[in-house]
Nucleic acid binder design. Structure first.
Length: 565
RNA sequence: AGAGAGGUGGCAGAGUGGUCGAAUGCGACGGUUUCGAAAACCGUUAUACCGGCAACGGUAUCGGGGGUUCGAAUCCCCCCUUCUCUACCA
């Protein structure tokens, strides 16, 4: 909300700013507000002086009552009644005028910063810089809405069943990628000095007004009428409202906070080709960074926020560009906004993944978020930025990194995900096969193909995903496989176990079935561990296993050497 | 969800119809004193709006809203919220 003092003292500046923002009814609205304001002040002056007189009379009446002069008191009461009538009508009119003034003030958008370019729409935005090279994809490259089906990681149909369109279900590696990104973003924000918060995702009406979603953009939020609460469209709302009605001690500035929340947007209408797949959703996840600073530091803070977001995109190895939004394309409450867009190679278009804005005092004025300087209370500046919104990041990661073997994730995510590549065969399927009685299926699956690639992949996947061992050495792989599975597979087993089986007794003490017996001479040493294998395994294909696992992004212990004993 | 008790200035805590924006204590800030500090003493110590160049004056605010009254922190009604017990639940 613009400050009345600014409207009064810098009317021309305000009108110019509103024009730049393409706010059509600026002159009329401002004139109306100033009129109302003048009327309001008259009314208050009149009301206050009447009230002052009434207060004084009340005091006198009190004195007269005490001294027992009832008649005197009654005389004064007559005047009091007149005054009361006057103050009441003045107060009623004052409330009405105030309300009208307030409604008009709420309608006015923030004024743009001087650096904001003129323009009407997205095409007029200024491209500040571009970073990274767009990947060259093969002719068989497909957009993410096909990839998520191929790898079975995000399911829109399931979401429709449970909720409705725009509420996808993230599955398996898809769900884990989401969780990994959230953790990565939060860790990076913390490292950059932001304190992590977990705010509510339902907010009350006052919070909606505080950050400017209400009263104008009511339709964009989901509303629970029963409790009069709104589902947040962004963490900006609860995070910034933490500081509503606060006078922040200057030594606590700047405030830097971050939080991950789901975000909900009704986004009525506008469904089409540009909003397929993950491009626009009703529910999505986002990590937000918020700063509250002294006015003189806010633009420097905005720069650090943009730099922080760029750092994330660089670590994710995504090509991006930074836009300075033009007056007509900016948000209602913003004074300066940088959008960050990521190149989504298969769609061949830029996707907005972040928006970082300085709201100057616009939100602070609504929030009554202030600090004291030289004994005077002053409005602070609020800023926020997405760091980052997940769905379009996921879309770009999927599209840009697609290969015939799977989707190669950037190195920074490997430890967060627990895997380096999204592959076609879901882990759970492998597990199901392993657990099933149908060992033929598994064996077939495992040893299909010339170099046993699929089976090798499966083993690596099982070790990495199922047993959650991030540093998988081939020796470790054998160590961490439960004996029951090893035995059932008839694939490999640790030497001593093989020996006990060959002696006719399993480790559990139950008699071993003869068909699982391993030839005692088929012992291979991997690293420090001696492994008894079945016939299918030898130094050659275990080495191939290591190679394959490495290829799909596992950190294989380089010390793993394979030798036959 | 039911029953009971609360919500007062930065904090603690008085105040149950009349100069109460609010005692007192603590904290914080300024000063006196001191070589310096401590102690002691003196003073200051909310927010918003209106009028005024300013000094200053006025109005409102004791969880929020409404009511009674010449006058409300104090009485009445509604709502929010905290605590205790019961019920239920992750």
């Amino acid at each position: 909300m613009l400050q009345l003092s600014v409207l009064r003292d810098q009317t021309d500046h305000v009108l110019a700013g509103l024009a730049k923002k393409r706010y059509a009814t600026g002159p009329a609205d401002v004139a109306a507000i100033l009129d109302l304001n003048q009327r309001r002040r008259q009314l208050q002056t009149s009301h206050d002086s009447a009230q002052a007189e009434a207060n004084e009379l009340a005091r006198q009446i009190g004195g007269l009552m005490k001294s027992g002069d009832k008649a005197g008191a009654e005389t004064l009461k007559a005047r009091t009644a007149e005054l009361k009538q006057h103050t009441q009508s003045a107060a009623a009119e004052l409330a009405q005028v105030e309300k009208e003034q307030q409604q008009l003030l709420y309608k006015l958008p923030n004024l743009p910063h001087t650096s904001v370019p003129e323009g009407r729409a997205a095409a007029d935005n200024e491209i500040v810089r571009e970073h990274g090279t767009k990947p060259e994809l093969g002719s068989d490259a497909v957009p993410h809405w096909d990839l998520i089906k191929k790898y079975d990681i995000i399911d829109f149909e399931l979401g429709v069943k449970i909720t409705g369109a725009g509420f996808p279900v993230y599955k398996g590696q898809g769900a884990r990628l989401q969780r990994a990104l959230i953790n990565f973003f939060l860790d990076e924000a913390r490292a950059a000095g932001y304190t992590e918060m977990q705010p509510p995702i339902l907010v009350n009406e006052a919070s909606g007004y505080g950050t400017g979603q209400l009263p104008d953009k009511e339709g964009q939020m989901y509303h629970d009428a029963k409790d009069d609460l709104y589902l947040i469209p962004t963490a900006e709302v609860p995070l910034t409202n933490i500081y509503r009605d606060e006078i922040i001690p200057v030594e606590k500035l700047p405030v830097r906070i971050t939080g991950h929340t789901p975000c909900f947007r009704r986004e009525a209408g506008s469904w089409g080709a540009d909003v397929r797949g993950l491009n626009r959703l009703h529910q999505f996840d986002k990590v937000e960074i918020v700063q509250i600073t002294e006015p003189e530091h806010s633009y420097a803070a905005l720069d650090t926020m943009v730099a922080h977001i760029e750092g994330l995109l660089q670590k994710l190895e995504l090509p991006y560009r930074v836009l300075r939004l033009c007056g007509g394309d900016m948000g209602f409450t913003s004074a300066l906004t940088f959008d960050l867009e990521v190149w989504s190679a298969a769609q061949g278009r830029w996707l907005e993944v972040s928006s970082a804005s300085n709201f100057e005092t616009y939100q602070a004025n609504r929030l009554k978020c202030r600090y004291k300087v030289d004994g005077k209370t002053q409005l602070l500046h609020t800023l926020n930025g997405s760091a980052l919104a997940l769905p379009r990041i996921v879309a770009a990661l999927l599209e840009n990194n697609q290969t015939s073997e799977g989707i190669k994730l950037p190195a920074v995510l490997h430890s967060y995900c627990g895997f380096g590549m999204i592959i076609e065969k879901p882990v759970n399927d492998v597990l199901d096969i392993m657990k099933s009685k149908n060992k033929k299926d598994y064996t077939k699956y495992l040893f299909d193909g010339a170099l046993h690639n699929k089976g090798q992949l499966v083993n690596a996947v099982v070790a990495k995903y199922v047993y959650k061992n991030p540093l998988v050495s081939i020796g470790k792989l054998f160590e961490i496989f439960p004996a029951s599975i090893q035995g059932s597979w008839g694939v490999f087993t640790i030497k001593e176990q093989a020996e006990s089986i060959n002696n006719g007794i399993t480790k559990k003490g139950t008699p071993a079935k003869p068909r699982y017996k391993t030839k005692p001479n088929n012992i291979i040493k991997v690293g420090q561990i001696e492994i008894a294998t079945s016939d299918q395994w030898n130094t050659e294909n275990i080495s191939a296993f290591i190679e394959a696992a490495t290829k799909v992004g596992f950190d294989i212990n380089p010390d793993s050497t394979v030798e036959t004993l």
